[in-house]
Structure formats: C-alpha cells, structure tokens
C-alpha cells in the first residue's frame, strides 16, 4: 500500500517536475491557440454588445428641427420607452406562441427521422440522411422566397389549393412561416440527435435484444432517454432562433400584406433602426438579448432539474 502511494507521489512529482521550466512555452502555446478566437470574439461579439448597451443609454438633443443632432446621456429613458411599447411585447408574445407550437413539432419530427435513420430496418440511409438535411443547405432567404411562391394565390403551381385557402392571410401567416422554419431546420436538428444516437455503445442494444426487446422498445426505453441531452440542446437553439425570427417574415412581406414591420421582435429592432432611431433600437435589442438569455437559461435549469429527479 505504502509502496503504491509513494510511487504515485513520485509520478506526481515527475509530472510537476518539468513544469516550471516549460511553463512559459506552454502558456505561449495556449495563447497562440486562444488569440485568434479571442480577437474575433472581442471584435465581433463583446464590442458590438457593449456598443449597443452604450447606444441604448443615449438620447438625441438638437436646436430647432434641422439643428445638428447631438447624442447626450439619457439614462434609462430608452428603456422606459421599451417597457411602455405594447407593440414590442405583442411581437414577443407572437413569437412565443410560434415557438410553443413550432419547436415541439419540429423536434418531434427531427427525433422521429433520427430514430428511423438509426434503425436497422431502414434502407437507403445515406440517401435519406442527405435528403432530410438538404433544406438546411438552402440559404434562408432563398428558402423563404421559394415557399412564398408556393403559397402565393396566383403564382403558385398548386393554385387549386392556394387559390381557395388563403395561406398568407392574417390568421394563417404565422403558421405558414412555422412550416418554412420547420422545413429548413428539421434536418439540422435531426443530424444533432442522430450523431448522439451513433455515440451510444452497441453493447447496450445487444443486451436489450438478448432480453427480448423489440426495435420499437429499444427506441422508446433506451435510445430516447440517452439522447435527451441532445434534444435539450436543439430545443435551446430553437428557442433562441424563434425569438430571433427575421428572414422568413421579412421576405414574406413581398408576398402578403399581413406582416407588419413589427411582426417579430427583430423586425421591430430593424424598422426602429431604419427610422433611424438607433438609441431606441439598441435598447430593444438589449432587452431582447436579456430576455432570450433568461429564457434559455430557465429552460436549461428546468430540464436539468427534471433530468436529475
């Protein structure tokens, strides 16, 4: 026993031994690897965020209508406007309603496709893996334009449907967008879940089969519980994506009158900044970012607590 511990100690001492000598070089290597990321992170993430926060604390002052505008410190006055703005909150409620319906549907489909790809019963896996994933490779704007034409009452190749059912009307437009988003992102989420399925050791399946479990039973009792972390990850991504919905509704404005310039929170930020009222737009984005952050952390906490139980 003592021999072993002393040997361990010796090994530890050996590991610590060269450290003071090579520490500088080691740290330099770390720096070389970290710097490219850190520079980009600071330049394109931290600085813009801090700049937005700074902008949100300013307000405009001028003499007369055409006096040159000067930005002065305005405290939290822009934030007061944000919290008074019912349009902003109704746009948030709109995307939340969207997310509550669309995210579960999309993730259920993604899980189903992932399980099918992983099941030994399916043939042509390579083809289907690519086919399900292909929509994600279509740029968002192009996908939205394509669906816009498909939905259009007079230009659609499915006129017999779109001519009779108004898919772009005020009541249906949100779900028409949900369909596009689902189409684009199912494959992406499927791939995340699928790769997590591939990481499950095959011995577990073998054991299950020896115990007489069917493929269906294996999927329900083994695969799904083991990929829950991947599903949570995709859910968090989707929640964030939902709150930041922009491309699809922006493009659909070319096809329908039922999308206002404040349809989603990000569209409101965009239209406010183009007034231009950069300070208020900055305050909107800061509040939106904080809300998104709280929502994602809250979701993670909630699901983790459940998983622990």
């Amino acid at each position: 026993m003592t021999v072993i511990t002393s040997r361990r100690r010796a090994a530890k001492a050996d590991a610590q031994g060269p450290k003071p000598k090579g520490g500088f070089r080691y740290r330099k290597a770390v720096a070389i690897f970290v710097v490219p990321f850190a520079v980009l992170f600071v330049a394109f993430y931290l600085v813009p965020i801090l700049y937005a926060v700074y902008q949100s604390l300013l307000k405009i002052q001028r003499q007369g209508t055409f006096g040159a505008p000067t930005q002065v410190f305005g405290g939290l006055s822009q934030y007061v406007l944000v919290f008074q703005d019912s349009v902003f909150w109704s746009s948030i409620l709109r995307v939340l309603a969207f997310g509550i319906v669309q995210v579960p549907v999309m993730l259920a489909l993604a899980l189903l496709f992932a399980l099918l790809l992983d099941s030994p019963l399916l043939r042509g896996k390579r083809f289907f893996r690519l086919a399900f994933f292909a929509p994600y490779a279509v740029p968002g704007v192009i996908a939205a334009i394509m669906w816009g034409y498909l939905y259009s009452p007079s230009l659609s190749p499915f006129k017999f449907v779109t001519g009779n059912v108004d898919l772009l009307g005020g009541g249906t437009i949100l779900w028409a967008i949900a369909n596009v988003v689902t189409w684009v992102y199912v494959g992406y989420n499927m791939l995340i879940i699928y790769s997590s399925l591939l990481a499950i050791p095959t011995e577990i399946y073998e054991a299950a089969r020896l115990d007489g479990a069917s493929q269906f039973r294996i999927a329900i009792a083994i695969k799904i519980p083991l990929v829950v972390p991947a599903i949570i990850l995709t859910a968090v991504f989707s929640v964030i994506g939902t709150l930041q919905l922009l491309t699809e509704p922006l493009v659909f404005r070319q096809f329908t009158s039922s999308i206002s310039s404040t349809f989603t929170p990000n569209m409101l930020v965009y239209s406010t900044s183009s007034v231009p009222n950069f300070n208020l737009a900055a305050a909107f984005s800061v509040v939106l970012a904080v809300a998104t952050f709280i929502l994602s952390i809250g979701f993670l906490r909630l699901t983790q607590r459940k998983a622990d139980q």
Partner: peptide, 22 residues
C-alpha cells in the same frame, strides 16, 4: 430588395464606431 434588406441587416449588425451624430 430582399438582398438589400438582408445586407442592410448585416450592415446594421456590423455598424459600430460611428462618429456619433456627425
């Protein structure tokens, strides 16, 4: 128009270090 809209969004995200209000 769509391209400009998207480009504008990108420009917006990248716009920083302006000289204040001129």
């Amino acid at each position: 128009a769509a391209a400009v809209a998207v480009a504008a969004t990108i420009a917006l995200a990248g716009c920083s270090a302006g000289s204040g209000a001129g």
